[in-house]
Amino acid sequence: MKQAAVIIGAGDATGGAIARRFARGGLTAVCVRRTKEMVQPLVEEIRNAGREAEGFGCDARSEEEVIALFDKVEADIGAVQAVVFNIGANVNYPISEMTSRTYRKVWEMAAFAGFLTGREAARVMLPRQAGTIIFTGATASLRGGAGFSAFAGAKFALRALAQSMARELGPQGIHVAHTVIDGAIDTAFIRDNFPDRYALKEKDGILDPEAIAENYWVLHNQPRSAWTHELDLRPWIEKF
C-alpha cells in the first residue's frame, strides 16, 4: 500500500518545500489549500520531478471537510504516515482596534483547524500505531508581541494542543512535534515588504524554506528512542 504525507497549508514557500521534500522521500505528497486550483502548480511541479502528488481543496476550519479529506486519502491514495499542519494566520492590530470577527477568524485558522487536523490524523494513525504529526508554530507560540494578540493567542493554543497530543499519542507509537519558526522566511511577502530584512538572504540571515523542510523530514525519520517534541529553527544571526 502506498504511503501519504498530508500537508495542510501547502503554500508557495514553507508548505510547498515540505511537500516536495516528503515526495522526494517516497511518500505521495497530498497538498492541501483552500481551493484545489491554488495548489495545482505545486502538484504539477512535484509530478514533473518524477514524484507523486495529489491536490485537494479543503477549508481546514470545516469539520466535515477535514473528515472527508482524510477518508478520501486513506481510501484512494494511501496510508497517512505524516501530517503537517502549516497554516499561519499572522495579523497585527492594536488591541483597541482588534475586532471579535478578526480574533475569531485567526483562532479558527491557526488553532481550531489544527485541532481538527490533529484529531483526524490521530484517528487514521492509531490503528497502525505509527505516524508523525507536525504542527508549525512561530515566535508567537512562545511570547505575544505588541499587536499580535490574535496570532499569539491562536499559536499558544496550537502549542498546547501539540503538547497534549504528544503526551497522549507518543506511548501509542505516534510522534507529535511542534516547531517554532523564529525569524523571517524567504517569501515574496518578506521580499516586497521588508527589503532590508530580505537583503540578509545573502548572509543566510532569513530562513530558507527548503532548510525548514529538511528539518521536518528529519523529525519524521527520528527513531522513537530519541524523539524531538519541540524544535526551534532560526537564522544564525537572529536574536532570541
Score class of each variant (00 low, 15 high):
Arg197Ile: 15
Ala213Arg: 00
Pro223Glu: 04
Pro171Gly: 09
Ala177Val: 05
Glu210Ser: 05
Thr187Tyr: 13
Ile206Gly: 05
Ala213Cys: 06
Pro223Thr: 08
Ala226Pro: 00
Leu207Cys: 04
Ile212Val: 14
Pro223Ile: 07
Ala226Ser: 11
Leu200Trp: 02
Asp204Arg: 15
Ser225Phe: 02
Glu230Thr: 12
Leu233Glu: 01
Arg191Val: 01
Ile190Ala: 13
Gln222Pro: 01
Gly173Met: 11
Asp186Asn: 13
Val180Phe: 14
Leu233Lys: 04
Ala199Val: 11
Gly205Gln: 09
Leu231Pro: 05
Ala213Pro: 01
Thr179Glu: 07
Gly183Leu: 10
Gly170Ser: 11
Leu233Trp: 03
Gln172Arg: 15
Ile206Lys: 01
Arg197Gln: 13
Trp217Phe: 14
Ile185Gln: 09
Thr228Val: 08
Glu202Gln: 14
Leu233Thr: 03
Gly205Ile: 07
His220Met: 00
Arg224Gln: 12
Thr187Val: 10
Ala184Ser: 13
Tyr216Asn: 00
Pro223Arg: 11
His229Ile: 00
Lys201Glu: 07
Ile212Cys: 03
Val176Asn: 11
Ala177Trp: 08
Asp182Pro: 04
Pro223Asp: 06
Val180Met: 08
Ile185Gly: 04
Asn215Leu: 07
Ala184Val: 03
Phe194Glu: 12
Tyr216Trp: 04
Lys201Trp: 11
Leu219Cys: 02
Glu230Ser: 05
Asp192Trp: 05
Arg197Ala: 14
Arg224Val: 05
Leu169Asp: 01
Leu219Asn: 03
Ala177Arg: 04
Asp196Thr: 12
Val218Phe: 09
Asp186Lys: 07
Asp186Trp: 09
Lys201Ala: 13
Ala188Ile: 11
Ile185Leu: 06
Pro171Tyr: 05
Thr179Trp: 03
Ile181Ser: 01
Trp217Arg: 11
Gly205Thr: 08
Gln172His: 13
Leu207Ile: 15
Arg197Tyr: 02
Pro223Leu: 07
Pro209Trp: 06
Leu219Thr: 02
Asp192Ala: 14
Val218His: 10
Lys201Pro: 04
Val180Ser: 06
Ile206Val: 12
Ile212Ser: 01
Glu202Cys: 03
Ala226Lys: 07
Gln222Val: 02
Ser225Asp: 13
Asp192Asn: 15
Thr187Asp: 10
Gly170Arg: 04
Asp208His: 07
Leu169Gln: 04
Pro209Ile: 03
Leu233Ile: 15
Ala188Val: 13
Leu169Pro: 00
Phe189Thr: 08
Asp192Ser: 14
Ile206Arg: 02
Arg234Thr: 06
Tyr216Val: 01
Ile190Glu: 11
Ala199Phe: 10
Ile212Asp: 00
Pro171Phe: 09
Leu231Glu: 08
